[in-house]
Design a protein around this nucleic acid. Structure first.
Lengths: 146, 146
DNA sequence: TCTAATGTCTCTAGCAACTATAGCTTCAAG
DNA sequence: CTTGAAGCTATAGTTGCTAGAGACATTAGA
């Protein structure tokens, strides 16, 4: 059995995060030592590593919740898992496209800046006037990051 | 003078967001009508459009606060504005690189999934075992999105 | 065996950048 | 003059954690 600290170290997850995962029910309630400290089995480590890995790939905790419940039922069809992953891929692709446009615009801004006074600053000028932009990085749908 | 609704419509910002910007001091307190409703000048519209545009480009509100105070002092050097923009560009570039790696991994996962049972599902399997990954999308530094 | 250091416990509050709700007041059109 | 849309304040919720306070548990060394 592992303490919460060891578990965290092995899975690469901070201790408060583990407690948080338990609190929101994505990890089951841990067994306790005589002195009320959490003790974890190897199974718990696997589950936490799964969560960690999925978070690294940008899945939301809600998606991970679904993936975990799928992985708990090995005889079901994997269509649902597949569609969660495809949705995540689509999400990542759309963020990539958007970021690429932002990058282009920022580069344009920075390159054009001659380094004089604010009054002549291209950065400030472009920010103040959207029509000076090349691309249409309009209406942001803001999502959680990575 | 514009009502808060008209201002929002013209700048592409929702009404509660405008009130929020005022609350955190990134927009000055608006003048009020006899009946205590906010009224905005053309100058306020410009300022809000600036904020909106900068948000679209992924700048944080803190960065925008700095950019605004720079733009209020047109005789200063534009070095500070330039460096804020460059920092944002670097940020965007690093997120781009990271997202590209995620995309590759997700594609690998999705493509390999044969569509059978969960027990054979490549998606679930890869999530459960980091060593099945090609790239090193390890340790996420999570930032605010776009 | 005692003690000191470290780890763990619960609980609460905070972060960014909003969004939503409730219950009220004001404004503008007909 | 009425009615309905738009505005007001205040508070709480969102996501995925992170930080702090103050108390208890565990463990290594003297």
């Amino acid at each position: 059995m592992l303490t919460i600290g060891k578990l965290g170290a092995q899975a690469g997850v901070k201790v408060p995060t583990i407690r948080y995962y338990e609190q929101i029910g994505i990890l089951p309630e841990a067994e306790r030592s005589a002195g009320n400290q959490r003790r974890y089995s190897r199974k718990a480590l696997e589950r936490l590593a799964f969560i960690r890995h999925a978070r690294d790939l940008g899945f939301t905790l809600e998606a991970i919740r679904d993936l975990l419940s799928l992985s708990d039922n090995p005889d079901q069809s994997c269509a649902a898992a597949d569609s969660i992953a495809r949705a995540q891929l689509a999400e990542v692709e759309s963020r990539l496209a958007r970021l690429a446009a932002l990058k282009a615009e920022l580069e344009r801004m920075v390159v054009q800046c001659a380094g004089g006074r604010i009054a002549d600053c291209r950065v400030i000028e472009v920010l103040g006037d959207h029509s000076l932009c090349a691309t249409d990085h309009h209406h942001t749908l803001n999502q959680t990051a990575q």
